[in-house]
């Protein structure tokens, strides 16, 4: 187990393995996303309350789920980097941030598009939306702090510490926003009920979530490969790479 861990942690080894593994994530991701799209848009029946607007759930929920999952992944990678000074962990945390920010943006944007027909407004100070917005700012802070350092090693470590502080704070933020929201429940807007999902509605959602996860894995690998190259400039193993990369 440990030798495996060490081996994967070595940049040249990771670079080689990830190059070979990447298509095994990307291709199933594309297949599942296509399947989920067809299933979500055509095969699943319209919701009896929301009609066809509920179909946005198939792109909204996976994005919101990934927004959180990627942040946790980033914080775990950051913690591993801080504790074991592992270059690959810092590279992963750095690679997670822009992808996570993109998922968070998607969760907010699709939520807003969903909100317009359902609530009549583009934005509602709903507890969930507000905490996702804060999550978006946490991603921005991580990226801004990391790029503010001239020395990338320092930037990595500082941003990693920030990610850890953020992940401790997220449950508190979530709790506070929920508490705030229950005090100010706007009565005029009809709440969005979590639709009681039947099997034929749920299946495309699960397919989409798995598709998003695999896509995240594939994109993450490509980004980590880039980060590894940037961090290992001039190392012998890079000069020995075949021109095909």
């Amino acid at each position: 187990m440990w030798t495996w861990f060490h081996k994967l942690g070595s940049p040249p080894h990771f670079y080689r393995i990830s190059g070979r593994l990447m298509p095994w994530f990307a291709v199933p991701a594309l297949v599942l996303l296509a399947l989920g799209t067809v299933g979500g848009l055509w095969w699943s029946p319209p919701d009896y309350q929301q009609g066809d607007a509920f179909r946005i759930i198939y792109v909204h929920v996976p994005a919101a789920y990934m927004a959180m999952m990627v942040y946790v992944t980033m914080a775990v990678a950051a913690a591993i980097g801080i504790v074991w000074r592992m270059k690959l962990a810092f590279a992963s945390a750095a690679a997670c941030a822009p992808i996570g920010a993109a998922f968070t943006f998607l969760a907010l944007a699709t939520g807003s598009i969903w909100g317009r027909p359902m609530w009549g407004v583009w934005w509602d100070w709903d507890g969930r939306m507000t905490s996702v917005l804060v999550l978006f700012f946490l991603y921005l802070g991580f990226m801004a702090l990391r790029s503010a350092f001239e020395d990338p090693v320092k930037g990595d470590r500082a941003a990693a510490l920030l990610a850890i502080v953020g992940v401790v704070n997220i449950p508190i933020i979530k709790f506070s926003v929920d508490w705030w929201n229950t005090l100010h429940q706007p009565a005029t807007l009809s709440r969005l009920q979590a639709p009681a999902m039947t099997g034929d509605m749920l299946a495309p959602l699960l397919v989409m979530i798995v598709g998003y996860m695999l896509l995240f894995g594939a994109i993450l690998m490509v980004r980590v490969r880039g980060e590894v190259l940037l961090r290992e400039q001039g190392a012998r193993w890079i000069r020995e790479l075949s021109p095909g990369g």
Partner: peptide
Amino acid sequence: ALLGLLVLPLALPLLVF
């Protein structure tokens, strides 16, 4: 300039309560 971006999201629970 960075300070605000880093602190304000984390300070949100304080403001709320």
